[in-house]
Design a binder for these strands. Structure first.
Lengths: 211, 211, 211, 211
DNA sequence: AATGAATGAGTTTTCATTCAT
DNA sequence: TATGAATGAAAACTCATTCAT
């Protein structure tokens, strides 16, 4: 009766909802555009009845936004764990660039999510609303960057005279810019590697201590 | 009946096509999401028959992609002219940031266009294809930045030891990042101004020659 | 572009609208309940595309209400013409009773319309709204009765010391009551004829001059 | 598992069935249209499981028809008791008119039931079938009127030279006509009172003995 | 006996595209 | 060349009914 809001914890999710979320993720990974995702395609992939989706969500928009929120959260959690195994800030940034590139080519959607953060569609708007809910906020990309930076700052790896928020946005920007570059110049391997190195150096020069 | 491809020069455009392009621009400026733009709404705003659109374009996607291409071209041309009146690279960057912010608040669409560059919808893909056509390339944002940078380099205002392409992408990235910031933190004026200054300084520190 | 409102004159009706109206009438005559009428069944019977219905009407409800209004108007006009050929008030009442009975058995819907006047469904409500529009009012059953009574009064056939409105409602009531009787006792011919005579006499005794 | 047929006596009704019946009544009193009543809304209001309804009834239609039959029976029983406290036929008729008007404005459903007697929906048809079952017949409106009239006739208050059945239908008709009048002219209080008086006088003049 | 999660057929509605005029 | 009436495939969503628990 109470509908899913997207604030549920992972272990609170009903089985069918998990199936729906996975179906949305798969569609995303297949490159299906947001506007072309239909309730039929989701429930079909999930292997459940169309009506069931409406037992848990009020509308297609709610369903997709919640699914994306869930996947983003999962993804950033995994990413965070991975980053935490790195020795220092530089390695973390290198790892992030790898991840972004891998994500781009495997379509596993980081770029799609970054994109959604500035999407004007009803689903994009709904997603931003849900992200605004405090509890979830902490897993969002920008917060992830801030967390990395805070740790690095206390370890004396990055400068402390620049606002954390600005540094987070700048890292986000450079990654998003790199994704755009990939969209346009994906074909040439050499160029790609050169650009990646430049982005890496750009971040390090601007924020890292020493050189 | 050769259809419109988007490669036409401004003065080659049939009157009806111009009307259609303007209609798409208006819809965009009204904030209509890409997915919610219909052929009816376009031809209605253009004041011409629905069938006429199909005399010039093979599909709605073609029509919208061509219109966006045209508008982007127009916009960057206008922007370029404006930037060329500026004394130096620093002023140009400040002007760009103003423009981005104004564009964001007046919905005059620069952010929408930047967004489209990494959009997976059929229209977005078509648009990128068209951008790839050499003749148009020169008017696209990245090329605009490269042109500015080339001039600035020859005037000794920016460093010459960094790849032009990287510098262009970095400027693009920082602007796109600033737009994302505006999406998320638009409400607070002070924060906004501080962030804009930081972005400006970030660009200048990385690329400008001395002070 | 301007949608049909139900206030159109007969010769202003587009061909397709006429087809839709006829389809609704046929469905009604087949005894289909209001709630079971679907847009598919209407356009199917009309032999036109489903979308066409929405070119002319904003919703199924609008379509059905307009169709019923049209049919009621047509029916009462025909009935009025028929009644005007009668010599006097008594013959008119006898004719009305015949008509009601015939209508009941041939399902040509007078009873359905009378019924709709007190129906709580969204279509019933819409219909009453449309009936309230002045121009149409004159053709509705109650107005028809009032017109007959006015003529009869000026011819000295009915009493002039009773309010016209009351007389109209009473005639309406007795007819509706007779329909209810038919619903419940339709099987027995003799009983039916006896009841019809009683209804006739009831009207005449109450309103006719002399005896 | 013999299902409920609607012929059960009040004290034979399982608790759950009573809950279902009450839920239907409440929905009706809230003005919900027959077509908008759902099994969910009924069982929800009844506070029992959806499946339980199907343990007792074969279909939604059966459930609603039985519920309405029950409520009508209850209502007419109550009404009859109330009428039996009246001194004479005239007071009974006045009381009936009060009841009808009160029922109309409080939505307590007499008008809805009268309406159902000539309704073509599957529920309406089912209801009439059930009314036809002899045991129940005695509680239906028409029978109620006949009972009143029989008593009044034996008390010398109404004429004995007119068929009881005709008188019953006429009273029913006039009440139904008054309801129609209320639907159309509910707003004006004065007109309403005048009409009610005329209806009352109409009945008395036609059927009452002397004055 | 009682439940309510799950279903999917069926409904209303939209809109890109066609084609007779 | 230009039109816009007509189409129908496909979408979102509802709800009576079933059935495993």
């Amino acid at each position: 009766m109470g509908k899913i809001t997207g604030a549920e914890k992972q272990d609170e999710l009903p089985e069918k909802v998990r199936l729906l979320y996975n179906a949305v993720l798969q569609l995303f990974e297949e490159g299906t555009d947001l506007a072309d995702i239909t309730v039929s395609s989701i429930t079909g992939k999930a292997g459940i009845g169309k009506g069931t989706a409406y037992d848990y969500f009020d509308s297609k928009e709610e369903l997709v936004a919640c699914a994306l929120l869930y996947v983003m959260t999962q993804m950033t959690e995994k990413l965070l764990k991975m980053l935490e195994t790195k020795e220092n800030f530089g390695e973390q940034m290198a790892c992030l660039l790898d991840w972004v590139e891998k994500s781009f080519f495997e379509r596993n959607c980081l770029n799609r999510f970054l994109h959604l953060l500035t999407d004007n569609s009803s689903i994009g708007q709904l997603l931003r609303q849900k992200v605004d809910a405090k509890e979830i906020e902490q897993h969002m990309p920008m917060m992830l960057f801030q967390r990395l930076l805070k740790k690095a700052a206390s370890d004396g790896e990055v400068r402390t005279d620049i606002s954390l928020e600005y540094m987070a946005y700048t890292i986000y920007s450079r990654l998003a810019g790199y994704v755009t570059f990939l969209y346009i110049e994906k074909q040439e391997r050499e160029k790609r590697e050169k650009m990646r190195m430049l982005v890496y150096q750009g971040i390090m020069k601007e924020f890292a201590v020493e050189g």
